Amino acid sequence: MSTPQFLTLPPGVRRTDIETSRGTFAALEALPGSGISERGPALLVPGYTGSKEDFISVLQTLAGAGRRVLALDMRGQYETPGPDDASAYTCTELGADIASVIETLSDPVHLVGHSFGGLVTRETVITEPTLIESYTLMSSGPAAISGGREVDGRVLLSALPKVGLEHLWATRMEPQAIAKGVPPDIVAFLRRRMFMNSAVGLMSMANELLSMADRVDQLAKVSGGASLPVLVLYGENDDAWDPEDQAFMAERLGARKVVIPGAAHSPAVEAPETTASALTSFWNDAERT
């Protein structure tokens, strides 16, 4: 299959693998134009059914501020393999994976978790706060997902064992993407990515996404005690977690809040320049303090 134009890597961005104590993780790496990182590294973690490619539009800009930036596929996502063991895909286990990735880097990282990736990385921060320079929850919420995305998750959980992924893709996922105006080459990539996911991982992650308890108080205790800067960033039209719930989460955390105009659930895709600017500003401020 030819590479969709959307997935053409910008200059300074390369595909790589990260070897850790818990396995190998597929990643995209962006470096400053000079090749020298003058600021702390950043690690971007995607959401459910997502992948490192969800951050392609922001990687070059983020690295241009003088830092190494990594985006990865979690265990069982796209180009990172995962076992046929449901217990391997809990937020606790996936969060430990993220910690193992950070441990391969030379410095504490600016950690970003998008959507389900926010629930995963929250476990990393609660467990290993000393590994983190700053923490961003991007389009993520305090607990289990709600609204229309909750319905989608429950449909997948119920139907996947009965009819299979091919049927779900052909009758639900692909028509939804086409109805939203997604270009054909991107639809082709989304199909390829979906079918490279671990089927067991899809089920287990969906269960986590639909049942996760509120852990904001635990995160607040850790981030406050460690004086860890936290940012809550989301699109004004987010259709996964209610924007009001995310705003209240920011209050509970004593966190900085940024609302991206015109964006919905994927600010890095829908408003990449605004999102990259907000992240860079937050990271620079965190390093100064």
Rank of each mutant, 00 (worst) to 15 (best):
M249E: 06
V163W: 09
N237Q: 10
L72M: 04
R288M: 15
M194N: 13
A42P: 01
A240D: 05
R256T: 12
L111K: 04
R149P: 03
P243C: 07
H114F: 03
D84V: 14
G66S: 01
A268C: 11
S281K: 11
W283H: 04
W241P: 05
L111V: 06
G141I: 08
H265V: 00
G117C: 01
D285H: 09
I132V: 14
T80D: 09
E244P: 11
A255N: 09
E133S: 15
M203S: 14
P41K: 02
P11R: 07
E166M: 08
L28T: 06
Y89V: 02
M205Q: 15
G64L: 05
G181H: 15
S100W: 06
E287P: 03
T275S: 07
L28Y: 06
M1F: 12
E208N: 09
L9P: 01
D73K: 02
T136C: 07
S198C: 14
Y89K: 01
T92E: 15
M74T: 14
L228Y: 03
E38W: 07
P10G: 03
P46E: 01
S158Q: 10
A188T: 13
T104A: 07
P142V: 09
V58C: 03
V259E: 02
D17Q: 11
Q176K: 11
R68Q: 03
M74E: 09
G95F: 03
E29L: 15
G47Q: 01
R154G: 00
D84G: 14
P142G: 15
D238K: 05
L111T: 01
F195I: 12
V69M: 02
R75W: 07
S204G: 07
W283S: 04
T49N: 01
T49L: 01
T124G: 06
G113F: 01
G153Y: 09
S34R: 08
T289A: 09
T49Q: 00
L253Q: 07
E103P: 02
G47S: 04
G82F: 01
S227K: 10
T80V: 12
F189C: 05
I102E: 04
S57G: 15
L253Y: 08
V222Q: 14
G117R: 02
G113V: 00
I126E: 02
G66K: 03
T289N: 11
Q246K: 09
V230P: 01
N197R: 14
L279F: 04
A268E: 13
S139Y: 04
E273C: 08
L233I: 08
D152S: 13
A276H: 03
E270W: 00
G113L: 01
A71G: 00
V232S: 05
V259P: 00
E273A: 14
V45L: 05
T16I: 15
T20E: 10
T274G: 06
P108W: 08
E287Q: 07
S277C: 10
G35K: 10
Q176F: 13
A263D: 00
K257L: 13
K52D: 01
P41W: 03
L119I: 09
M74G: 03
